[in-house]
Simulated assay, not measured.
Amino acid sequence: MDPIAPHGLHHVTAVATDPQRNIDFYTTVLGLRLVKQTVNFDRPELYHLYYGDEEGRPSTLLTFFPWPEAPAGQLGSGLATATAFSIPPESLGWWQQRLAALKVDADAPVRRTDEEVIAFRDPDGLVIELVAADGDFRSGWDGAAAIPAEHAVRGLHAITMTEAALEPTADLLAGMLGMTLGAESGDRARFTMVGDNPGTLVDVTAGADEKGRQAGGTVHHVAFRAPDRETQAQWREQLIEAGAKVTEILDRQYFTSIYFREPGGVLFEIATDQPGFTVDEPLLELGRTLKLPPWLEPNREQIENTLPALQLPGV
């Protein structure tokens, strides 16, 4: 049986520290929409914050577990070490000026795989890249007053994984996950998922001497898109048959998920596109109030008393 190939990145989830600082940075500096305010279903004393486009569509999502006591993480092998968003090619200079005006310490643009890239870090040290990408016609979120629609961040473009060795991870991406090996430059290899949609790129850099440490300012996991639960179940069966240790299908309220680790150690998730973020609140009100899944709703008062109060944009 041919491997079932993902049709794009679904989301990237990272570890933050201060939830208010996290909201301020991603809604104000990058102009993403806070599309869901919920909790870590496995640790409901912590928030789980989702940012994306107007509807929180798959391939636009960056999410965070804000953990105030988290120590600083360390980049290295076995981690996703950069999360790239696409911007219109003509917006590169505008974003350089915006980041400088907001005193965000950004690197000078570099050319990589025929793309111009600006790299910087969020307040916790998470590496974010803005890529001037042709052919991305997503609208992004145009509700951020300080960011004109023509310059808005479009959505996820690529993730970069750092590994000690390329081959084991490359074998999984190109074999079990059906990706195509594209450009190679030095110690960097680019893998492309099926289809012409944006947000379908995985870059792998190899040769890292030190093991990464997952904590504040690092990526927790990378999620790929499955169109429906049936495809997700088939994918799970194929992964198990290939010897991967895969979780059961878990209900994440806005999608269902399975998790496994690739050979280098990065935690992968396969998440369904549906039902999406309007399953428990209207589109216009996304992210405005704390939403809990049915099994945590009886504990709402206790959970709300544990979580710090948040000041939301525009409220």
Rank of each mutant, 00 (worst) to 15 (best):
I4Q: 13
P6Q: 09
P6A: 10
H7G: 08
V12T: 13
T17A: 13
P19H: 10
Q20L: 05
D24Q: 11
L30M: 15
L34W: 03
F41R: 13
F41D: 09
Y51V: 07
G52E: 01
T60N: 01
T63G: 10
G73Q: 08
Q74V: 15
L75W: 10
L75C: 06
F85E: 03
S86I: 06
I87W: 11
P89E: 13
E90L: 11
W94I: 05
L102A: 10
R112T: 09
E115H: 15
E116W: 13
R121W: 00
G135W: 10
D136Q: 09
G140Q: 05
A152M: 07
A158G: 10
T160S: 11
T160D: 12
E167N: 12
M176T: 14
G182L: 10
D187K: 14
A189H: 13
A206V: 01
K211A: 15
H220V: 07
A223H: 04
P227L: 02
R229V: 13
T231K: 06
T231Q: 13
A233T: 12
R236P: 01
L239F: 07
I240V: 15
A242P: 11
T247Y: 07
D251L: 12
R252N: 05
F255W: 06
T256K: 13
G264C: 03
I270N: 06
G276W: 00
T278P: 00
L283F: 03
E285C: 00
L290Y: 04
P298C: 03
E301D: 15
I303H: 08
G314S: 00
V315S: 14
